[in-house]
Design a protein around this nucleic acid. Structure first.
Lengths: 351, 351
DNA sequence: TTGTAAGCGTTATCAC
DNA sequence: GTGATAACGCTTACAA
């Protein structure tokens, strides 16, 4: 036998207080006498009363609902990163008492239209932006309208854009990751560590390359170093092709901008190197693939990033002074996950 | 200069009609004179008016919001499937005018608590369930309360459970997929095709195994067939180990229950087979990994599944008679994606 | 066909 | 500290 869904009123008259004594217990507990408060709380507990989000939203114009675009990254293999981010964000939002609404859009322009919709129709309280790029109109659009948001990924790009970019964002220090990866290979005996990255003018890609360059600076003559970097589109076969180039240039190890590239490089080197010599390859993003084949990889602190983004957003939404909350701009350090390649059976004739 | 957010009232008096003429235009267009309707629609367009979801929800007790749990499948490599499902569902929901809210839960029990919350507090209209298993309480719980929902995955398990399972679900015919995969290998010259699957009593796993068994039935003596099946936990190394077993039993090709297993089998066979002979392995789920290494794989029609689930749910929510809508229970056929393994550089000494 | 009135459940403002 | 009154923006009878 299920009782009818209780409301503030029905609950109030059931225990003989007025409606906003109950409301106060929920929203301004200190205004209500402890004894009464206790009684009300017990009644709430027993009745299973839940405040109506709709009514609350109508009154307060806040929905306790956050929005995020689900991008259809065709890449897939690296999509795992956004997948983990979404997970972490869902949990963080839930813990903070917010709901998370998903939307999709073909491009940034369409995303703005969707945001506009959600803002006006559903009173979303804020948004999480991902994958911001140089020519990103979204941040400016949201700032103009005073819509709370936070970005996963620091603002990139040249010129005045970065000056205006004083909005909240969290990013991962890709350079530190590739730097550590490079040192790992150097320490393990490689002299010439190459870098296998993406074509230039890609924010995160350039960032990752720079970490390698910095770690190698001074160890090899610039001319040599130059030959040790290759760029390829983010696929496994392209990674294999580029790895061949690097090998020809004398690379003894390869730091990669992604696990896709690393998988290609790894597979190529495995067959190209003399039997018994394991390829020295490090990937980026620590995707399941890397774990699957036992590939060392730079692991982004995705969960921490999501939590921080949520914290920043929640603080903003709370209306408390900006300078008292969590740092609105934060660069997190990645971790290097070191693995030994699985021996998936060994080569024939090698025991 | 941004005008203040228009409401039904402000809009109505701006064009000199009553509030619910406007309301009628939106909800019962046929009740309003074409000329007036036109005028109202234009005003809506110009003012950028959007009905308030909160007010509407408060009045109608419908939120136009659907819920789905984001599972934290630790597997990762196969998580890509749910990722694609979520994408497709987000888009389908959006097209149908619904929003999609995400939640997370540690287990089914906690999920029910979350659903209860969302139901009472936020008036969610329906839910999409995934990964239903034999001892699934969730469907019964929702049915008891008359909450609309649809399941991705058919009800499994023995006994009366299946009899009561007359709720909407969509599933993919895994057996058809492995059957096709088996025939692919048979056609390509293999005589003894083995199956590398998961431990028994796993719904989808058993389904996939049965497809292979059916395709092989009669081609080999039962005793021999029995040796050609192996079970392993869903990881790459476990797949490699099991593949070795199958090879020893004389398997010339391997159909796998997942791409993780297939990747392991592929990697093992690649080194174990004589140079020049490509491993005959087929995976399942057509994940990015399979595409990455050029592995044939069974592709589930995820997008179609999501669309159908959305259609079923939308129909239910529309209140139209059950028997006029899309089929509430549907098994979709997977497709076999045939690939040739990339030659990632060839073996040394082989040109 | 259009307008009038009531109410959905909550919070804010103000008296008591 | 507590209780009445008035919105918030919309839909749905019902009356004109």
């Amino acid at each position: 036998m299920v009782r009818k869904k209780p409301t503030l009123v029905s609950l109030a008259e059931a225990i003989g207080v007025s409606r906003q004594t109950v409301s106060n217990v929920l929203n301004n507990p200190e205004r209500v006498k402890p004894a009464t408060r206790e009684r009300v709380l017990r009644a709430i507990e027993e009745s299973g009363y839940r405040p109506s989000a709709a009514a609350r939203q109508l009154r307060t114009r806040r929905s306790m609902d956050l929005g995020m675009r689900l991008r259809s990254e065709a890449d897939g293999i690296n999509g795992a990163v956004m997948d983990r981010f979404l997970h972490a964000l869902t949990e963080a939002a839930q813990e903070a008492g917010y709901r998370l609404t998903l939307y999709s859009a073909a491009d940034d322009e369409e995303e703005l239209a969707r945001i506009d919709d959600l803002l006006h129709a559903a009173d979303l309280d804020g948004f999480v932006l991902t994958g911001s790029n140089a020519a990103d109109r979204r941040a400016a659009w949201l700032q103009d309208r005073g819509v709370p948001f936070a970005c996963f990924g620091r603002p990139r790009g040249a010129g005045p854009a970065s000056a205006a970019a004083d909005y909240p964002w969290v990013d991962v220090d890709g350079a530190a990751g590739t730097g550590a990866a490079t040192r790992l290979l150097l320490d393990s005996g490689c002299q010439a560590v190459g870098f296998l990255g993406w074509p230039p003018d890609n924010g995160p890609g350039d960032d990752r390359r720079s970490g390698w360059l910095q770690a190698m600076a001074g160890l090899l003559p610039p001319a040599k170093l130059n030959g040790l970097q290759a760029a390829a589109e983010d696929t496994v076969p392209a990674g294999a092709v580029a790895a061949r180039l690097l090998l020809e240039q004398g690379a003894e190890g390869v730091v990669c901008a992604s696990d896709s590239l690393a998988l290609g490089a790894f597979a190529y080197l495995r067959t190209a190197l003399p039997p018994g010599r394991q390829p020295a390859v490090v990937g980026f993003d620590d995707t399941p693939v890397a774990a699957a084949i036992g590939l060392s990889s730079v692991s982004q602190p995705i969960t921490a990033a999501a939590r921080h983004i949520m914290a920043v957003l929640a603080h903003r939404l709370s209306g408390r002074p900006e300078d008292q909350g969590p740092r609105p701009q934060l660069v997190l350090e990645p971790a290097l996950v070191i693995r030994t390649p699985y021996n998936l059976g060994g080569r024939p004739g090698k025991g």
